[in-house]
Design a protein around this nucleic acid. Structure first.
Lengths: 153, 153
DNA sequence: AAACAGTATGTTATACTATAACATTGCCGA
DNA sequence: TCGGCAATGTTATAGTATAACATACTGTTT
């Protein structure tokens, strides 16, 4: 499902992008934030907050507020997304232009693909408009089976 | 936001519809199930599981599994929907034909409007297809502000 | 009616998800 | 170096959900 065959590359790219974004915005991309983002990207699927917490373990012996605050920071800056239907978090594949994206969640291999399709966003905006509704944030998560898993089964 | 000005009517209609659906499917629409569905419909907004639990109180002194099991039953039979972004539940406005619906959630008045628009569903299905993805269930929740609240503010 | 099977509900305990409130540390400019 | 602010640590608790097992209810068969 994922286009990235050399997975270490994904992680490095994501961290590099985060470095740049934080530098531009004069935000501190601290060791903790870097480590959490890295852990999230090391997963092809989505990451649960408490799993991240355990992986931080050791030196950090992190507690919930530490993890949630870090996740909040990453979300606010478009570096990760929360998947509401899973209570889990995924790295954003294209930070900076991360508006109106949605997710294809394979319940077989657990991978999550982020998509952006402006015509989908347009359709949703039109529909909201017809209902006289002013949208602020859209949660669009489609659960199903990805191509690879369909082939296998 | 809601079309129903005589709110008691909504509740009665929803209970009546549930009666019919359960009868058709030879399911038991027990007192507990009826009561939970009624509590959900008495709210214009969405209902939290633990709030429902408290309202059941008295005679029932319900505990979490009782409430969640009842909610599961209602969901499985299309009588209520879970709003993942709120961890809350709403009554389904048109049970039996409850496929591909989505929600407009006003964060000002907390009302939730359920919508079905086949062209939205079509757009999403196309998009999934282009990504070689076979969708099973879609979570589409749009948070924003409804017409009434926009006017007021 | 009594026995039975299956569904529904009750009960106890616990897992999982998230935040409040306050303390401490670390960074950076005045 | 002092003061201020951002980041992280710490303790406690709130909020959401399920597992596992016990009991009760409903309808059918004998």
């Amino acid at each position: 499902m994922h286009a990235c065959h050399e997975h270490a590359t994904c992680v490095e790219e994501a961290l590099g992008a985060a470095d740049r974004i934080c530098a531009e915005r004069e935000l501190r991309f601290t060791d903790l934030r870097r480590r959490v983002l890295s852990l999230i990207w090391e997963n092809h699927g989505s990451s649960k907050a408490y799993d991240i917490m355990e992986k931080l373990g050791g030196d950090y012996s992190a507690k919930p507020p530490t993890v949630y605050r870090t996740l909040d920071f990453l979300q606010e800056n478009g570096l990760v997304h929360k998947i509401n239907s899973l209570n889990a978090y995924v790295g954003c594949s294209h930070p900076l232009k991360h508006k109106d994206c949605f997710f294809l969640i394979c319940s077989c291999c657990n991978e999550v693909q982020e998509c952006c399709a402006s015509h989908v966003a347009d359709t949703l905006r039109d529909m909201a408009g017809k209902n006289k509704f002013s949208p602020r944030h859209t949660t669009l998560e489609i659960e199903g089976e990805c191509q690879d898993c369909l082939k296998k089964n």
